[in-house]
Design a protein around this nucleic acid. Structure first.
Length: 344
DNA sequence: TCTGGGGTCCTAGGACCC
DNA sequence: TCTGGGGTCCTAGGACCC
């Protein structure tokens, strides 16, 4: 248990990582996402601040991003997402953070918690200078638990430091909508509004039982605790152990032919099987995902009996599930997922 | 405007068992 | 003969995050 939790978040990570190896792009709007095909049906993963200035943010459809930037920034640069490279850059940053001698919990490519019993502002500045040695920059949130640290980072971006504790929690965001809290999205915000809860302070004062009746026995009380600013003070410093592996593809054009669908499914299943084998663990359950032209998404899953990592067995079960699902509309996306056995 | 890919966790209903 | 309640597993879907 740590007295202070710090949350480090790399600024515009994917775009910044690209600038590391292409310094000549500095100052230009840089948009990372998809496979680099200008017409692909994909979205922006990360946009540099120069691109954000023109309304291009994460999640913007790539075609729309091109249109928005074409007007004012014909010099904008579009790059395909190179996940293997970003992972290497991330690994190096996390290695440096672990070198600080404090507990570190990695929670994403570009985010980590660092715990300390020492002076948190001094550590926050050390984190920023340490990360800067890689050529990247980060914002740091300081909190008395993980939730307050992560929330604080939102006030620190880009590249700053902000502290959020029990002392200033409600003064800072008590009147903000519940969606200001990490883990509360649009659907939950809507459901809470139906209960008359429209602010973080209101959520904190709600009766957990009332929220549970609307949002579930576990989630209801959890949301109330979020409103109160409660979070962990214990970090999980162990390596991340994946619970599932999946691969999915949105096709350039919708597929209707059953043989085409099965051929694509087989490719995905084999890629998943490769990932499962690389984990050195068995697959216990196989799932597929089908999204049709109308964007309706359905899933099917079934236990793999016996569990294993044989690509043929995983692909065969995926094929059975696709036949059962038998989509009757043109298919936009196919996905295959393997749930992994508990690590030994 | 036309909506990615890779993940995690929770919920709820039905089956099944005692 | 009829009725019960609780626990657990399986599965589909929802919500959210980066």
């Amino acid at each position: 248990m740590s007295r202070w939790i710090l949350h480090a978040d790399l600024d515009q990570f994917l775009a910044a990582a690209e600038l590391l190896r292409r310094p000549e792009l500095a100052g230009l709007p840089v948009v990372v996402g998809g496979d680099g095909d200008p017409d692909s049906r994909t979205v922006v993963a990360t946009a540099s601040y120069e691109a954000r200035a023109h309304g291009v943010t994460s999640g913007t459809p790539m075609k729309l991003a091109r249109r928005k930037l074409a007007k004012h920034r014909p010099d904008a640069v579009f790059l395909p997402s190179d996940t293997a490279y970003y992972q290497r850059v991330s690994d190096e940053v996390m290695r440096l953070l672990r070198g600080l001698g404090e507990p570190v919990e990695v929670i994403g490519w570009d985010e980590a918690f660092v715990g300390t019993d020492g002076e948190p502002w001094a550590l926050a500045r050390r984190i920023r200078t340490t990360v800067a040695t890689t050529g990247l920059s980060c914002a740091v949130g300081i909190g008395d638990n993980t939730l307050r640290a992560k929330t604080a980072t939102g006030y620190a971006k880009p590249g700053g430091i902000h502290e959020l504790t029990a002392a200033n929690w409600f003064a800072t965001l008590g009147q903000d909508p519940p969606s200001a809290l990490p883990g509360v999205g649009p659907a939950t915000t809507r459901a809470l509004a139906e209960l008359g809860i429209t602010t973080v302070a209101g959520l904190a004062e709600a009766r957990p039982g009332d929220v549970a009746a609307r949002l579930g026995p576990h989630r209801g009380p959890y949301y109330v605790s979020l409103g109160r600013g409660m979070g962990r003070t214990e970090l999980d410093t162990g390596p991340w152990v994946p619970r599932s592996r999946s691969r999915e593809t949105t096709f350039p054009a919708d597929l209707t032919d059953r043989a085409d669908l099965h051929a694509e499914l087989r490719v995905l299943a084999h890629r998943v099987a490769d990932d499962v084998a690389a984990e050195g663990r068995d697959c216990v359950r196989v799932g597929i995902r089908v999204r049709t032209r109308t964007f309706r998404t359905t899933t099917r899953s079934r236990a793999l009996d016996p569990p294993g990592r044989d690509a043929g067995a995983i692909a065969a079960l995926a094929a059975v599930l696709l036949d059962e699902l038998a989509p009757d509309r043109p298919v936009r996306l196919l996905g295959v997922r393997a749930e992994l056995a508990d690590a030994a």
